Computed example of a mutant assay.
Amino acid sequence: MAGFLDRAKEKAETALSQGKEKVGEVQAQREGQALLRRLGTAYFNEQRGTGSAQEVQDALQALHAHVAEHGDGFLTRG
């Protein structure tokens, strides 16, 4: 009986770990998408004359940092 409980506990811990990993991936994708929107907004505002080149540069640097840490998987089309 103890062997069964040990295996069940191990499987539950593995599932929990996988779930936490997936949540982290989803959060990183959402953050990346938000950074893309920020960059797009900054660029659009700069082109309209209501924003600055510095805002575009700041948004681009934040996006580069995110990609360096989490990869560019959120950049898929669709």
Rank of each mutant, 00 (worst) to 15 (best):
M1T: 14
A2M: 09
A2W: 09
A2I: 12
G3V: 08
F4A: 09
L5N: 13
R7K: 15
R7D: 15
A8D: 08
A8K: 10
K9C: 04
E10P: 00
K11R: 12
K11G: 05
A12Q: 08
A12K: 07
A12S: 11
E13I: 13
A15C: 01
A15Q: 04
A15V: 03
L16P: 01
L16T: 12
S17F: 09
Q18Y: 03
G19V: 04
G19E: 08
G19P: 00
E21I: 14
E21Q: 12
K22C: 06
K22A: 12
K22Y: 02
K22R: 15
V23D: 04
V23W: 00
G24W: 13
G24T: 08
E25R: 13
V26Y: 11
V26F: 14
Q27A: 14
A28H: 04
A28E: 07
A28M: 11
Q29D: 13
R30M: 09
R30A: 11
R30F: 08
G32M: 02
G32H: 03
Q33Y: 10
L35S: 02
L35P: 03
L35A: 05
L36K: 03
L36F: 02
R37A: 10
L39H: 04
L39D: 03
G40I: 06
T41R: 05
A42Y: 00
A42V: 02
Y43M: 11
F44G: 13
N45K: 11
E46P: 03
E46I: 02
Q47K: 15
Q47E: 12
Q47T: 09
G49F: 14
G49M: 14
G49L: 12
T50S: 11
Q54S: 11
Q54M: 09
V56A: 00
V56F: 00
D58M: 07
A59H: 00
A59M: 07
L60F: 08
L60T: 10
L60W: 02
Q61P: 08
Q61F: 12
Q61G: 09
Q61L: 15
L63W: 09
L63V: 01
H64L: 11
A65I: 13
A65L: 13
H66R: 06
H66E: 10
V67P: 02
A68T: 12
E69Q: 14
E69Y: 04
H70Y: 15
D72C: 02
G73M: 01
F74M: 01
F74V: 01
L75K: 05
T76K: 06
